[in-house]
């Protein structure tokens, strides 16, 4: 009798968990479907163009800005994580550093944006530019990359390090040739999350990257303020474009542009994480973890 009651309870709870999971799955699909159908449904061809009236330029700016921010945050973040995992001795300074990293990771992005505005723009007498935006986004993603790297290193079996040191390798050689490759899959996951945050960031870019949509695709002079690859030109990203179109834009199709931007942004983030997961899986397979 008791067993029957327990079994019934068990079945009931299992049902509850399935229902909750199903609800969230449904919510996700409904949300994604709504954004994609609304976005691409009413889109007109010119909206895809790489001109001021399309969102092609914003698309490019988004990719370029995230790329720039990763160039800054990935090496620094990984080095910081390695320091925390392998070199830092437990003590006051390490504790303080850890608090700093935690605080940094919970900073509101608008604060980072305003900080970026004051330091990268006002103090340096620059106009709004992509590089400053990338720096702001890098500040936001640094803690994530640093902590994932630290966790990845700490979760490696101690035997890797012992084996390498026991053969007369230095700590530096051990880190570079054994530990870092072994930790790579998890670090990549952290970088993906950081990039995802960069793709969707708007508040930190308001006063740093600016909202120019001007790119002269026929000019490849890096010094030109409208050259696509010039990191010191202002540039509006997709996320910022959504905000701008819904608040400031006056055009008749502003709403549709915002919808399309949302849809493109979502597909982009999705494609990026899929790609990164494939990459991570491939590295793990090459190492023999999933033979």
């Amino acid at each position: 009798m008791r067993n029957k009651v327990n079994l019934a309870k068990d079945k009931f709870m299992t049902g509850v968990f399935y229902a909750v999971a199903g609800f969230f799955l449904l919510l996700l699909f409904a949300f994604a479907g709504y954004v994609i159908i609304k976005g691409f449904g009413g889109a007109k061809l010119y909206m895809f163009s790489f001109t001021r009236s399309g969102i092609g330029n914003q698309f490019f700016n988004t990719v370029y800005l995230v790329f720039l921010s990763l160039v800054i945050s990935v090496p620094i973040g990984i080095m910081a994580g390695i320091y925390m995992a392998e070199y830092a001795k437990e003590g006051k300074i390490t504790k303080f550093l850890r608090i700093c990293i935690e605080t940094l990771s919970s900073l509101p992005s608008i604060v980072v944006g305003l900080f970026g505005y004051l330091v990268f723009i006002v103090a340096t007498h620059q106009q709004w530019n992509l590089f400053s935006g990338a720096l702001a986004v890098a500040i936001l993603s640094l803690p994530l990359i640093a902590t994932t790297t630290e966790d990845a290193f700490r979760s490696l079996p101690d035997s890797y390090k012992k084996g390498s040191i026991g053969m007369g390798a230095t700590l530096r050689q051990t880190i570079i040739t054994v530990l870092l490759p072994a930790a790579a899959p998890r670090i990549i996951t952290g970088v993906i999350l950081a990039a995802g945050r960069g793709f969707g960031e708007a508040a930190a870019l308001l006063y740093t990257a600016g909202m120019s949509t001007d790119i002269n695709w026929s000019s490849w002079n890096l010094a030109s303020p409208t050259c696509a690859l010039n990191p010191f030109r202002p540039g509006e990203t997709l996320a910022l474009n959504i905000w701008a179109s819904r608040t400031e834009a006056l055009g008749a199709d502003a709403t549709q542009i915002a919808n399309l931007s949302s849809a493109v942004l979502m597909v982009m983030v999705l494609a990026f994480s899929l790609l990164a997961h494939v990459l991570e899986h491939r590295i793990r397979r090459n190492m023999g973890e999933k033979a």
């Binding site: 035997s159 012992k162 390498s164 053969m167 054994v178």
Partner: peptide, 15 residues
């Protein structure tokens, strides 16, 4: 440690 090598209890090949 280059002159005096070590083999451990658990086989520990690198990945």
């Amino acid at each position: 440690r280059q002159r005096v090598g070590m083999v451990f209890q658990q086989p520990n090949p690198f990945p």
